[in-house]
Design a protein around this nucleic acid. Structure first.
Lengths: 391, 391
DNA sequence: TATTTTTGTTCGATGGCCTATCTAATCTGA
DNA sequence: TCAGATTAGATAGGCCATCGAACAAAAATA
């Protein structure tokens, strides 16, 4: 059953809309917010008053005069409104980012990871504590925490399966809320990163984009029609097992020629090793390419071609506006691009290929933790989804 | 700018929800509708009163007693509420269906098509006039008309391009409203058929499904998260040019091995002709298969395999709950199925393949005109979409 | 200094939904 | 037969939302 549609929901929706409008356009006046949201200025007045009561918004002391007439008073989302904590939880590392409610980064922190759940959680707690001390805030300032995890979640925040961590069927959200004593949101890391791209990255005005990343495998997330698409079972986005080479490399899934046997970090390192080229990680690969290493460049170009082939089918089917390369793929993005764009132009239908552009994510290593920030923000701001039968 | 969120919008949403609940569950009482929509019975009371004022709903005279207490009075969407007209406009044929507002079919009608716009529109008007006479209704009873066209539409109802009809940049919606003097909705035929499947067919409870059809090409429509997904430019769903055979048949798009060179009606007829088997249309092919013609069955099985391969990538990426074969593919669906399901099981990731089921559409030839009905219903019932920044 | 101009607040109107109460219609059981 | 129990639906009052219009505030301008 979907949510009740009543006046409380209206206010919840408009509150979120006004807040996000101010987040996107800092130092706006009430008049600006009215224009941005389409709401009457009287409504904006009461909504802003409520946001002030919630300590989410502050009005600046001095006012800026535009030309004639009463000057506008600028509004802001102050640091005193509280902070958000975004976490990337991985076998190899735990990365923590703290931001204001507006998404401005206050500090970073990183720690070696762990495969044992209890150890990982304890380390996480210690890391966040240290990070808070570093930026001079305490727990009372934390509004919410969001965590991106390489695994599959259900809607209630239960981790169904995380192969890389070796975790299965863990009530991770409940455990973290117990641990931190504040609201916690959890989601798949790639999906979280895609949401971050939408709220803080390069997709702020883009309703339809595909986000691709490549670590151990190749993950994807689909942002369709202004919202993240999760699929019937929450698995949507599994682009890594698209078949790109008939009878190609053997994949962990048991089939041959899957995309992720060519373009994941693991695959690239393995294939370079096969050529006698040692690289510790994707950064080292990028460095080699930067130095003009021909074989490395060729291999990345080929990987880009395979990725472009897989994406071309997706472009034909989904007609996105933008494709974003994130995570490890962003690190070598510049070297994947030529092959990728060539394959895309050759394989995708002309009008669709012409409209889509491919970009490298600007969020870098912070993509997933910033996704945690986006999840946390959603957690206490987003109204419930409501469904109406329609086309 | 998205719609204003105010109390008028709330009522619009709840009106639509109650109407659809009654459409889905005929002869419901107000109490039933309250349970179905989650709304308070007081709210249901006023909403039903308004629906009655709008002549959309009627209360039955006699009442049905369940056990003890005051008996319920059943509500219905009566024929006197008006009728809807659904149209499929094609080069070869114009097909018209009339239904009640609840979607119950009142009559069918078909006519040879035309490639000339003026002739086609005149013929359409005459066909609808005749059909109305046949079911004993006149134009005053028509609430709205919906038309499915094999071509690309923009959001305002302008036909951008219809290669099969040879039309380009035609303000088809405005022309039809002029012609009929009542509200008209237009959309791509495959997308319309998918909406019909959702409202009247086998996907009434399914929020995530892929609809596939094959006429001259292979078309698809994506119903994702409870609504039809159109893509950034309205092109979403082009499954026909997925590459399924490297270096395969030459396609009209200039590339090789596209899906639609194997499984469209045109492709199947052409490939059968290459084997010396003459079939006039897809119905004849189905008949041959029915008679046990080995070569025909083999070719359909192979087509099913190619379709299954294309769909397997899509299943991996979109994680749908259901795949529906419609249009001409439904006619030979039984013979495509074995190859299709085999390919799907082999190629798609196990947990995803296990959850998805493939079905043949029950709507048959009426799928597109019923899509017109769905569009027409949406036109005067669906509230405006509202967007909230979120994940 | 008075006027103009623009911003933001407040008040009343309107119209949603919801709680509580009331009425209607039937069944139950003595 | 008839009073009570039970359930469906209507109505009134409360609350809260947006919105239009009048109002207050603050600065530039003449």
């Amino acid at each position: 059953m979907s949510a009740r549609v009543n006046s409380a929901l209206i206010r919840q929706i408009n509150l979120a809309r006004v807040f996000h409008a101010l987040r996107e356009h800092p130092e706006s006046s009430q008049r600006d917010l009215g224009r941005l949201t389409g709401l009457d200025k009287a409504t904006i007045s009461t909504v802003v008053a409520q946001l002030q009561d919630l300590k989410l918004v502050e009005r600046s002391e001095q006012s800026k005069a535009r030309r004639v007439g009463r000057p506008e008073t600028a509004l802001s989302i102050p640091r005193s409104a509280g902070i958000l904590v975004g976490v990337r939880l991985e076998p190899s590392a735990i990365r923590v980012v703290t931001t204001t409610l507006a998404g401005a980064v206050l500090g970073h922190c990183q720690l070696a990871g762990s495969l044992d759940i209890d150890t990982a959680l304890k380390a996480l707690r210690a890391t966040v504590d240290r990070e808070l001390a570093e930026i001079g805030e305490d727990w009372s300032a934390v509004r919410a925490i969001g965590v991106g995890i390489p695994g599959l979640m259900d809607r209630s925040g239960r981790l169904v399966l995380a192969p890389n961590l070796g975790w299965r069927d863990v009530p991770i959200r409940a455990m973290l809320e117990e641990l931190f004593g504040c609201p916690v949101e959890v989601d798949n890391d790639t999906k979280a990163a895609a949401i971050a791209e939408r709220l803080f990255g390069m997709c702020r005005r883009t309703d339809d984009f595909i986000y691709v990343t490549g670590d151990s495998g190749v993950g994807g997330a689909l942002f369709l029609g202004g919202r993240l698409y999760r699929g019937a079972g929450g698995f949507a986005g599994e682009i890594g097992h698209t078949k790109v080479v008939p009878g190609g490399n053997l994949c962990g899934c048991g089939r041959r020629g899957c995309l992720e046997t060519y373009v994941s970090e693991a695959a690239i390192l393995r294939r370079l090793a096969g050529l006698g080229i040692e690289a510790a990680d994707i950064g080292a690969v990028a460095a080699l390419a930067e130095q003009g290493h021909g074989q490395v460049r060729d291999l990345l170009d080929e990987a880009g071609r395979h990725l472009g082939f897989a994406l071309s089918n997706l472009v034909n089917i989904l007609n996105p506006q933008l494709i974003v390369l994130g995570g490890n793929l962003a690190v070598v993005g510049a070297w994947l691009m030529p092959g990728l764009e060539r394959a895309l132009m050759e394989q995708a239908l002309v009008p669709l290929a012409a409209e889509v552009s491919v970009r490298v994510s600007p969020l870098g290593e912070d993509a997933v933790p910033m996704g945690g920030i986006a999840l946390a923000l959603d957690g206490f701001l987003a109204p419930p989804r409501l469904t109406v039968p329609r086309g």
